[in-house]
């Protein structure tokens, strides 16, 4: 079923929308959740939460790209669930690894965060990505949005893992410099 039809089912409050969504995007959403949580049951729960949130968001929302809309929800739900876990249960998932990597971009005290607008940072990252070639852009998105492993990214991009790692490292360095320079977040 086409995305437009599925969205229309949501708008018509037709419960078939959930089934159609699961049939079409269930495994992709589960993959994202597992990348973050590294737990099958928790991931399935997050996917179900995704369906519920989608049900509540449509209407009034009518997403342009349903797949991205759903994946974004899954990502947020899963990350939120990950953060609510006890520290002892926070396994070394891909999300954990990606988060550790991004710590290289940290450049100021924690107190700064209160003064920085979330969307402004997003805009800075978007501008930074637009300066990159498509290949690097995809590597960055695959790693830090979809939480794919380096191995998976290397397979999709037809690159070696070491190559992907090197590119990710350089992008993190560049991102840090970009955020400091273009972001103007220094206080």
């Amino acid at each position: 079923m086409q995305d437009e039809a599925i969205v229309e089912l949501y708008w018509q409050r037709d419960e078939r929308a959930i089934n159609e969504t699961e049939m079409k995007y269930g495994k992709y959403l589960l993959k994202i959740a597992e990348n973050i949580l590294l737990n099958r049951e928790d991931s399935q729960e997050c996917v179900n939460d995704t369906y519920l949130k989608a049900w509540n968001l449509m209407p009034p929302n009518r997403p342009g790209v349903l797949s991205v809309f759903l994946k974004r929800i899954t990502r947020f739900v899963s990350i939120d669930k990950f953060r609510r876990r006890n520290t002892s249960r926070q396994k070394a998932s891909e999300y954990t690894l990606a988060l550790e990597e991004l710590r290289e971009c940290e450049y100021a005290e924690d107190s700064m965060d209160a003064h920085v607008d979330q969307m402004y940072v997003t805009e800075c990252i978007r501008r930074f990505l637009n300066t990159l070639p498509m290949e690097k852009k995809n590597i960055f998105v695959g790693r830090y949005f979809y939480m794919d492993s380096v191995k998976d990214i290397a397979g999709k991009m037809h690159l070696s893992e070491s190559n992907v790692k090197v590119q990710l490292y350089r992008m993190r360095q560049d991102l840090k410099a970009y955020l400091m320079k273009e972001g103007g977040i220094e206080l």
């Binding site: 990350i79 971009c105 940290e106 965060d113 920085v116 990252i125 990505l129 955020l179």
Partner: peptide, 13 residues
């Protein structure tokens, strides 16, 4: 800026 904030910001790309 914490890594979590960057991670959250990436979610809005």
């Amino acid at each position: 800026m914490k890594a979590e904030m960057i991670m959250d910001a990436i979610g809005y790309l």
